[in-house]
Design a protein around this nucleic acid. Structure first.
Lengths: 197, 197
DNA sequence: CAATTGACATACGCTTCGTATGTAAATATC
DNA sequence: GATATTTACATACGAAGCGTATGTCAATTG
């Protein structure tokens, strides 16, 4: 264990803390998470945490950043499978809705994240999910497939609709039956942007 | 002061606490609000608070309920001015976007509310804003003006889009210029639900 | 090999929440 | 109308939790 270099060790502790925090935040929420418990579960103390992340908020920001990156990557992968540009936008939107069914994503990214860190579009770790949507919208606009609309506004609204829908699906009684309804409604709304349908 | 009946006195303290809490929640956020300070500002102590609202969460729920009711009332009023059913839906949506520019609404209803109380559609005080949207959507569907879509899903997505857009507008540099863009994008998206446009 | 940096642990004070208990005034009972 | 009882609210207490200040030991540097 002593054979490792110092930076590698630090990388390891950062990883442990992130993993433990992610688990605790997802299970109990940000407010109800004790930093003592969290660090103890990772075999460390609060000293390591404050040294690496500054404060509790900084830790949440790091966790959010990690999850956000994973989500965006997954959405892009699923989007890339789509044939047309338009299908790509739809696929990404549906992907967000599905991913937001994950309790971890909901609790951390959709609920606690905005409450503690403020509006997602202001996060230092720029919301990557939003970036993906914006790219798709911009390309569609360039191809004259969309009615004239502000790129930023359209992206925000699409993302907001999708993520909010996911919260609803996840909280309802029969998520499995509700999910397709949400995705269908998302498709209809999105088609409002099309020049022709 | 002693001339009042007991229930009237209690109504008054409830009002004082609600007002003070609303102010403090809006200014500092839920987590950073001290119940000691909050009650002291109202000329009371925590005893009154716990007696009337159970706990901090209960207090937030009461505040959210109050604001939600005001928002829904305003939206319905603005919606009622519209000529057609369709214009009513649009007017209500735009009204939500505008109201969410109020820092009080943002901080309390959009950020802290969901984080502390969970998904709005599960709130005991049923989200009245959602109710208004749902009513409008249902009537439009009955009139065959909308493509077949799940009422609940469409309402949730429309509301989610509007409120999320508001968060973006409020956080951006030039809200005055951004607001119309958001409202225009909302209109386009909503038109996706129309049978013909 | 001595000096210094730095990663993390330990210890402390302050704030805050929730509860348990106290009290005085309003209502109820006769 | 006097006594009993409820109850609206205040006070007192204990238990966490956060952030900082300080300590320590290993890894780096010259």
């Amino acid at each position: 264990m002593a054979g490792k270099t110092r930076t590698a060790m630090m990388e390891e502790t950062r990883g442990k803390l992130l993993a433990s925090a992610r688990k605790s935040f997802a299970e109990h929420g940000f407010a109800a998470t004790s930093m003592d418990d969290l660090t103890a579960a990772a075999g460390l103390t609060r000293g390591a945490l404050y040294h690496n992340f500054g404060d509790k908020k900084g830790l949440l920001a790091a966790v959010v950043d990690q999850i956000d990156a994973e989500m965006a990557a997954r959405a892009r992968n699923l989007g890339a499978l789509a044939g047309t540009l338009w299908d790509r936008l739809l696929a990404e939107g549906c992907a967000y809705i599905e991913m937001a069914l994950d309790p971890e994503v909901q609790r951390i990214v959709l609920l606690d994240g905005p409450a503690v860190l403020g509006d997602p579009s202001q996060w230092p770790s720029q919301n990557r999910c939003l970036d993906a949507t914006r790219d798709a919208v911009r390309q569609l606009l360039d191809a004259d497939l969309l009615r004239p609309v502000d790129v930023e506004a359209a992206s925000r609204l699409l993302n907001g609709a999708a993520l909010n829908a996911a919260l609803w699906v996840a909280a309802c009684e029969k998520p499995a039956q509700t999910l397709p309804k949400a995705q269908e409604a998302f498709r209809l709304l999105a088609e409002g942007l099309l020049t022709e349908r």
